[in-house]
């Protein structure tokens, strides 16, 4: 479920990035790479788990699935927070810079 959630997040972000390309004011590319990196890593994790559990891997207990989905959503939110922090620090539109300079004046 965590793999699926991060894969969906990666696909959605890539679509948003492509729709806005070549403009990259919002630094969506960072979010894409982050979610794709995590998706690949969880994919590897899933392969190793499948090798251990075989067909049982595809029939998880509902409680485990719910917990994994909850984790997946939390991971997506955590990724969004990281992206937001990077966006505010890099400030590609200069919004924070101009707001601060206005205050100084």
């Amino acid at each position: 479920m965590t793999l699926l959630t991060s894969a969906v997040a990666a696909i959605v972000c890539t679509i948003i990035w492509y729709k806005n390309a070549p403009k990259n004011d919002m630094k969506i590319g960072i979010l894409c790479w982050m979610y794709w990196g995590a998706t690949i890593m969880w994919f590897v994790d899933a392969i190793f788990e499948y090798a251990e559990l075989k067909a049982e891997y595809f029939s998880p207990a509902p409680a485990d699935m719910l917990n994994d989905f909850f984790l997946g959503l939390s991971v997506v939110v955590f990724g969004l927070i990281i992206w937001l922090v990077i966006l505010l620090i890099k400030d590609p539109k200069g919004v924070i810079k101009s707001a601060l300079s206005k205050k100084a004046n």
């Binding site: 965590t2 991060s6 590319g29 960072i30 790479w33 982050m34 979610y35 794709w36 990196g37 995590a38 998706t39 690949i40 890593m41 969880w42 984790l71 939390s74 991971v75 955590f78 990724g79 990281i82």
Partner: peptide, 20 residues
Amino acid sequence: KWLRNMLWGGSALLLFEHVW
């Protein structure tokens, strides 16, 4: 930098999972 972003991003999200 694409690779760097994938590695840092993936590691950060997996770190969160391990904390969880």
